[in-house]
């Protein structure tokens, strides 16, 4: 039930709404529970029509570095 789907931001609309691409399907999502600003091509998690989190790109890159360390250890 707490299923949240990764989606790509396609379009920023008015009134706290955006269009996201979820595995090829475009649909509207509400961003009133997000403090960060969004840009086209950002990745977000969508839960029941609301964006609940924005992908931290820096952290995602950091993860890859951590893996490299882990894989070599």
């Amino acid at each position: 039930m707490c299923l949240a789907i990764p989606a790509k931001v396609c379009e920023i609309l008015k009134n706290n709404r955006i269009i996201v691409d979820i595995t090829g399907v475009r649909r509207e999502a509400d961003i009133s529970l997000l403090e960060e600003t969004l840009e086209i091509e950002d990745y977000v998690l969508v839960h029941t029509g609301f964006v609940i989190s924005k992908l931290d790109k820096k952290q995602a890159k950091e993860d890859l570095k951590l893996w490299d360390e882990l894989l070599q250890a």
Binding site: L33, G49, I52
Partner: peptide, 17 residues
């Protein structure tokens, strides 16, 4: 409305507005 904090927060947004 059923769910843990993930879903409750969405319901909360609508309760308020």
């Amino acid at each position: 409305s059923v769910g843990f904090e993930t879903t409750s927060s969405i319901t909360a947004a609508e309760v308020i507005r």
